[in-house]
Design a binder for these strands. Structure first.
Lengths: 213, 213, 213, 213
DNA sequence: AATGAATGAGCTTTCATTCAT
DNA sequence: GATGAATGAAAGCTCATTCAT
């Protein structure tokens, strides 16, 4: 049954989150899923493929959010849209970041995962690409500055999401929803406004003044 | 000898960086350190203690990267300074990333690291604080927009650095210095200009002006 | 259907020839035969029984290669005939060799094969007997030296054939037809002329003469 | 201790002879050798390397015989020398043939064994080369016919030795020493005299006669 | 302090076989 | 007859750790 297959995936995800990859054994997975160890290899080619499946299932949430992005072009404010996206990304990243990091800690597993992704023609950068496409569309509407490189901006946003999730994972407990919203809002604001001072005419003076003072 | 002890630590650190925690065996450590496997247990209670020592040391080192920042306030352009900072951060992060990831792979190790950090009041965010302080100083000089929240902006920059390092670690070989510089430059530009258009017609011209001045 | 049964046998035989007994799994057999794994157990008590059937069949087949030999007595040159015979033997042996080797790998299988051969009075040496009979016939015609013991000579030729096949199986790809012909030709020449010198001076000339005649 | 290492090798050889490669497990080896399973991997890189070591130890007998060959050049009769060599080869082949055949039955193991041989720069044809060198030396002394190709003749002799051992292994029990001596003697005689009739002058007539009759 | 042979538990993976459908 | 999911025992191998020297 497919039920067993799903049990195995769920058991794996749970063990991954509670004990980490280093302590993850097929024995434990089988026991937790209530199946024979051999069954794992009936449904998955090896342990890596099982882990990959866990990651992929979790990622589908983020995928859905990103695929609905084109519908938002031109609607609401850009800030609102980006906050919504970052928020969704954050939550799926939060679950998945410890697993992805774990894979980093095992070069062999990492190579196997990359092979699986190549085999299935999956591009990890695709998500960023969709975010960039959204920014480009908004750029054409004049809602994003013409000087912005959509790909670079999308990547910045993506990085902020992942890294915030990692930071929060390194702290003991998941922060409150309010805290998360506030953080994300601040980051989006920062990205929106940029660091350099605008209304340049006046600014120039200030600069000169401060130099003189 | 203490020399052997140090050799073991160095060997462990190097293996952690290059091969990851998962395939880190006492045999490899001993071979790389040029000592017998048994000797490890004269200097460390067990393998975990050895790893803790390495990880702890590496993670508290990370905060010393930004000490020279105050000297740069008001000098050169902001972009130049930020690019220099991100570049330094990137190289430091590039080496810690595999070790941080290892911490994620083993929740026992992770708990221990969290305890140590709490106990010694080590704040991995301290470096970000220094970066924020720099931005605040520049803000007082008018070289950073008044609306910017220095802490948030600093964190964004920090995240971009560490995440870029992770990305590059994922690819098996370190990218060329030129490639790194180009990437960082793009991210800094994105952060500097921001996404939102600033009274676009005038702004573009003004932008050009300010470049000329 | 009986068709499925035959498919299973053929698949097993082919896998035995190409991959060897050690990696022969019921899964591979089923996949190659295009049936479900469980079906094997409807037609055969267990895997061993299936293998026995294949091996038995293949090994008793081997004796039929030399049936046409009596027709060649006295015709063409002896060398030509022997080369033709060795060539035919070689190709037959080339295919059985992996199966014979498999028998050696499992003493249980080996005991069973020995029992079957005893029970059915199957003599793997029978083919050699026919080759010996041919040599004896040629000996009566004076085309084989009187001192030759046909049975021993036949066995030598047989051994050379099977051993050459084994050598070539050891190399992963079947050698070219030309290469095979050349090897066999050399071995036949060696067997024909013998090692000991025969009043050398005269012999050489005589040899040439006999070729012309 | 080296004692354990040797125990492991002996246990392996014994199990190989009594049960065959297919039933050879590291578990059984360890139990029979009276050591922990893990110790096998302390002394040998993997199971294949252990098996290789068994083969090599057994082969050293044959090696010694072949290396003493140069001393025999020109002494005694050629037949006597060849019989002595074939006899020695036969006995070491008899022990080793089931193992070598077993390796044939497992392509993976075979590849590993070839890799080990490459690694250690061991040439399985070297033995034949030494036999060929001996024949060539005798040829220079006129004790072997000038027309003989030493390499081909040596290979024939080698093949006869191996194949006789295989034949005898396929029969239930090792033949008596007398029987072995007789067989080998016959094969050597056959190889020495060759098949084709000599004292050609007379032979020709016989041929013509028989054609006419 | 230093060695490295030895241990034994536990790992991932394989596979012949069974059985409900 | 036919399926293929499921089993469970056993395979080869790894590795932190111990201990006699």
């Amino acid at each position: 049954m497919n039920e067993n297959r799903q049990n195995i995936i769920c058991a794996t995800e749970h063990l991954l989150q509670t004990h980490g990859l280093a302590r993850l054994t097929t024995r434990k997975i089988a026991r937790k899923a209530g199946v024979a160890e051999g069954l794992i290899y009936h449904h998955f080619k090896d342990k890596a493929e099982l882990i990959y499946e866990v990651v992929e299932q979790r990622m589908s949430d983020a995928k859905n959010v990103l695929q609905s992005l084109p519908l938002k072009v031109g609607l609401r404010t850009l800030s609102e849209n980006l906050e919504a996206v970052l928020s969704a990304l954050y939550h799926s990243h939060y679950e998945i970041v410890p697993i992805i990091c774990s894979v980093f800690a095992d070069n062999q597993l990492r190579a196997r995962m990359q092979a699986i992704m190549k085999e299935r023609e999956i591009d990890p950068q695709q998500a960023i690409g969709e975010l960039a496409a959204y920014l480009a569309a908004e750029q054409r509407l004049g809602r994003v500055a013409g000087s912005v490189i959509p790909q670079a901006a999308a990547k910045c946003l993506w990085m902020i999401s992942i890294q915030t999730a990692m930071d929060d994972q390194l702290m003991e407990q998941k922060p409150s929803a309010a805290r998360i919203r506030k953080d994300i809002s601040q980051y989006v604001q920062t990205m929106m406004a940029g660091l350099e001072p605008h209304s340049p005419a006046r600014q120039k003076k200030t600069l000169k003044k401060s130099k003189k003072s």
